[in-house]
Design a protein around this nucleic acid. Structure first.
Length: 557
DNA sequence: GCCGTTTTCGGCCCGACTGTTTTCAGTCG
């Protein structure tokens, strides 16, 4: 279904359509803006090659794509660009991306700034603001000018999304601080944190409280707060010292479920729910599900979903990737939980580049409730295999598999002969340098001793994903009975969610491992579980939910 | 520009907040 080249073409088309939407918005053409945005989203989230769809004449079957936009997509696919976009860009020759990235500046303001002051770039904007030219414009004033000046700095130094694992502790701290306030009944972290997205742009928190003003006062004066962006009785936004924004909203108990649903998103998921509501002559908002003026649901998420004819949908699934249709048919997966994880099959100790001894790793793993673990030190560090195996054998806190992590070389061969690998209970094969990933993985899996492919694509958050034809990898892994790893290192999360979904659909097993290099990092497995859940994985898809006996049989030892 | 067990024309999510106004436009989520 997915392959990387398709996604690249899809991305190009979506990008250009979004660009057109920006200009339409600038022109004030509200409805064409929406039409182009919707079409862009459709293409971006389409799970197949847009070129195939075009070749088969099916473009117009896609939601939000009609005669006109279909023709535009054809043009983009055949020429790589769009004449309409060039015309629009000529009409307003401004650096749209930069200007729109200034908080508080939208398309209407960009238009005004360009037409009145000829502002095209961030530098132009800064200069005119410093010269107090902005405040003279209609609808502007001293405060707006000062705000723009402040936010230009932020736009320039904008820190992009943070890893989930970095933001969760921050959100938890705010949550517990709010929970201590008198009259606060409920506090929930919503947004992309609740959905478990691998990176997070801001923190969304919802509360119910008897005295909203008091909550807002406390929230906006927390130690963590750098600056109050907005403050009202129902909604406040602060910029935290860590550099990201945090929103707080207060709701009544009767609508808390609807609000939680709404502010958990995703946006695409919400659109889908609203569509269902409308088709049943109802209206869904953060204040509940309404038929006419009567609220038919709102107290809990489950209540709202049920009233829409849907079973409960776990937050990790709410990305409009088919979960709504599955919920309508009662066919959602029974997702894997952290408590289903019985062992950890990838970790390092003092025998290679880990910082803790086998004993300490085992002790802590046991505290975390793991029934078994596999030591998988790097093969090149293990010069005395027997000593390594004996050391692993002496561990008592948990069942131990004496494993090894072996490098996949550039030609797809392994750095250690199969004959030696056979002495280990478990072999994780992984790539640690870029290039030729697909072919190397396919070749490495052919080696009989290999049980698991570690961090298959080698991607690291913040860098572009390496090119991998995951469809082929997943298919071959499934045939050969090799498991693909979900590496739980919060900067890897590799396989990523969409790849997990491909693996699960293909019947390929996955292993959710910590790849810990220290005791503490054993806890990282929670991030891998979230990623697997986002990929629709059930316990049976995951080899380390098996008991040790069953796992040993699966491994063939 | 798209779309239809409300419609082939007339809608398109909508509420909160701010700064600018003197009743509202723009932005954000």
């Amino acid at each position: 279904m997915h392959n990387i080249y398709a996604l690249m073409k899809n991305h190009l088309v979506a990008h250009i359509l979004n660009r057109v939407a920006d200009y339409m918005e600038l022109r004030g053409d509200e409805f064409r803006t929406k039409a182009y945005r919707r079409a862009a989203r459709t293409v971006e989230f389409l799970g197949e090659d847009i070129e195939d769809v075009a070749a088969q004449g099916r473009l117009r079957e896609l939601p939000g794509i009609g005669e006109n936009i279909a023709a535009k997509i054809e043009e983009i696919l055949s020429t790589g660009s769009l004449s309409l976009l060039e015309r629009l860009a000529g009409e307003y020759p401004v650096d749209l991306d930069s200007l729109l990235s200034v908080e508080g500046v939208g398309p209407k303001t960009v238009k005004l700034l360009y037409e009145e002051l000829g502002i095209k770039t961030l530098d132009d904007l800064e200069e005119q603001a410093r010269r107090h030219r902005i405040r003279r414009l209609r609808g502007m004033g001293e405060k707006k000018e000062a705000m723009i000046l402040r936010n230009i700095e932020l736009a320039r130094s904008r820190i992009s999304r943070r890893p989930l694992a970095y933001v969760v502790p921050l959100a938890s701290r705010i949550k517990s601080e709010l929970l201590e306030l008198e009259g606060v009944r409920r506090v929930e972290v919503a947004g992309s944190i609740r959905r478990g997205r691998e990176t997070v742009g801001d923190i969304d928190i919802l509360v119910t409280a008897t005295d909203p003003h008091r909550v807002m006062d406390h929230f906006t004066s927390m130690d963590l707060v750098e600056e109050v962006v907005v403050k009202g009785p129902k909604k406040s936004t602060v910029r935290l010292r860590e550099g990201l924004d945090c929103d707080l909203r207060v709701f009544d108990d009767e609508v808390f479920g609807a609000a939680l649903l709404y502010f958990t998103g995703s946006w695409e998921f919400n659109v889908e729910l609203r569509r269902i509501a409308i088709s049943s002559s109802m209206k869904l908002s953060e204040y509940g599900l309404f038929r006419g003026d009567e609220r038919v649901a709102g107290r809990t998420e489950a209540e709202v979903l049920e009233a829409l004819g849907l079973t409960y949908i776990e937050p990790e699934l709410r990305e409009n990737r088919g979960e709504v249709a599955a919920a309508a048919e009662g066919k959602l997966p029974d997702l894997v939980n952290l408590s289903d994880i019985r062992g950890d099959l990838h970790m390092h100790t003092l025998f290679s580049d880990g910082i803790d001894a086998m004993e300490y790793m085992a002790e802590y793993a046991s505290i975390l409730g793991r029934e078994y673990i596999a030591f998988t030190d790097h093969a090149r560090y293990i010069d005395d295999v027997d000593a390594y195996l004996r050391a692993a054998e002496r561990i008592e806190d948990v069942e131990v598999l004496a494993g090894v992590e072996v490098n996949i070389l550039y030609d797809g061969s392994l750095e250690v002969p199969d004959k030696i690998l056979q002495d280990f209970d478990l072999v994780v094969a992984s790539i640690h340098d870029p290039g030729n990933i697909t072919e190397r993985l396919l070749r490495a899996m052919e080696h009989d001793p290999v049980d698991i492919i570690g961090h298959p694509t080698g991607r690291v958050l913040g860098s572009p994903d390496p090119l991998v034809d995951m469809e082929r990898v997943v298919e071959r892994a499934s045939e050969l009975g090799v498991a693909l790893e979900v590496n739980s290192n919060p900067l890897r999360l590799d396989l990523r969610d969409t790849h997990v979904r491909m693996a699960v659909d293909a019947g390929c097993r996955i292993a959710i491992n910590s790849d810990a290099h220290s005791r503490g990092a054993l806890e990282n497995i929670r991030w891998g579980v979230i990623t697997a859940r986002r990929g629709w994985a059930e316990p049976d898809d995951v080899i380390n939910t098996m008991g040790i006996r069953k796992l040993r049989r699966w491994l063939g030892n």
